[in-house]
Computed example of a mutant assay.
Amino acid sequence: MKVNKGDIVARPSYKCDLLFRVVEIYPDYVELAGEDMRLIADAPLDDIVIVSEKDRSEHEKKSKEIEEHSYLLFRQDAKLMKQRGEYEITSGYKREPNHFELRGRVLHIDGDPLYLRKCTELYNRLGVPVYGVHLHEKEMPEQIGSLLEMVQPDIVVVTGHDAYLKGKGSEEDSRSYRHTKYFAECVRIARKYAWHRDELVIFAGACQSHFETLIKAGANFASSPERINIHALDPVYIAARVSLTSFMDGISLSDVLRNTISGEQGLGGIETKGVMRRGMPIKYD
């Protein structure tokens, strides 16, 4: 079996439960990135099979259904938040809203260019302003400072791929994770830029990342409390909820996690305020 970069494969040793994209090929093994999950893994050449077009189509159909369900849940909550905001700003009077919204701007740094494209599409669909950058996880700490200065975001997402490496040590040791240390360093640098957790809201992490390390470093939200895999789009739903919530309101952790695909086993956080600001009146030309 000839394997090429970009091939979609599965691992028989894991009962082909996840689909992966081949990102690097070595003499005895390949490096894989999850097709839907933010997981990176090495696999022996004899432990991968190329996924047929039929199986891939079926998988994509199921994934789209899951993603669309989360999107609809988010839109329902966003509609309720908007209606409540309009009621408050008009003091309950039933009249045409005459206000505008300044939604929180997101700086999304992603270790996977394909995931970045998918995330950017979802931000645009949700009406969230975003500046997206693709960087390898190891390069992120070197670049985040200048990006913060340039973009001046309200929300930062630092994500990509990660994995717990059993041979490196225990699950409680953050050094046992492939990229957690780079995500944590980015958070620490961002906190020097804005130390208050409601001034700059940060999401950090990917599949199986060491949640506690990222929260202690200064993140508002992070993955992964139970060291499970998280979906590629989960960081977007958290950032979008912050962007579309008024700075006068706190964000319900249970609500924001309910709208993600991975849920509270894969994502967690601390009490945080929204960053969106309303203004009035609207000036019409």
Rank of each mutant, 00 (worst) to 15 (best):
N98C: 09
S63E: 15
F100A: 12
Y71T: 11
K62A: 11
R95W: 09
G104T: 01
K61M: 10
K61R: 11
M81D: 13
E101Y: 06
N98W: 01
I109P: 00
K64V: 06
S57H: 03
G92E: 07
I66H: 09
L114C: 00
P97T: 04
E67G: 01
F74Y: 14
L80W: 01
V106E: 05
Q83Y: 02
S63F: 06
G85K: 05
L107M: 08
R103C: 08
E58R: 09
L80Y: 06
G111C: 05
T90W: 06
T90C: 09
P113E: 08
V106N: 05
D55T: 05
E68W: 08
H99F: 12
R103G: 04
G104Q: 05
Y93T: 15
S70I: 04
K64R: 15
D55H: 07
Y115P: 01
R95K: 15
G104H: 03
G92N: 09
P97Q: 06
H69S: 13
P97A: 09
T90S: 15
G104I: 02
P97S: 10
D55I: 02
K94G: 12
H59E: 08
K79L: 14
E58N: 10
L80A: 11
E101T: 05
L73F: 00
E86R: 02
L107W: 03
T90P: 07
K79R: 14
L114T: 04
K94T: 14
S63T: 09
G104K: 06
H69G: 10
I89G: 04
E86Y: 03
Q83A: 12
Y71H: 10
Y93M: 15
F100N: 08
S70P: 07
D77S: 09
S70Q: 03
H59G: 06
S70V: 01
R84T: 08
L102F: 07
E58F: 04
H59Q: 04
E65V: 11
E101H: 04
Y71G: 04
G85T: 06
D110Y: 05
E58A: 08
E67C: 03
R103A: 10
S57L: 07
L107H: 00
L107N: 01
L80R: 12
H108D: 15
D112G: 03
E86N: 09
E96T: 13
R84P: 03
H59K: 02
R95S: 14
F74A: 06
I109Q: 03
K82C: 10
F74W: 09
V106L: 08
R56I: 06
Y93D: 15
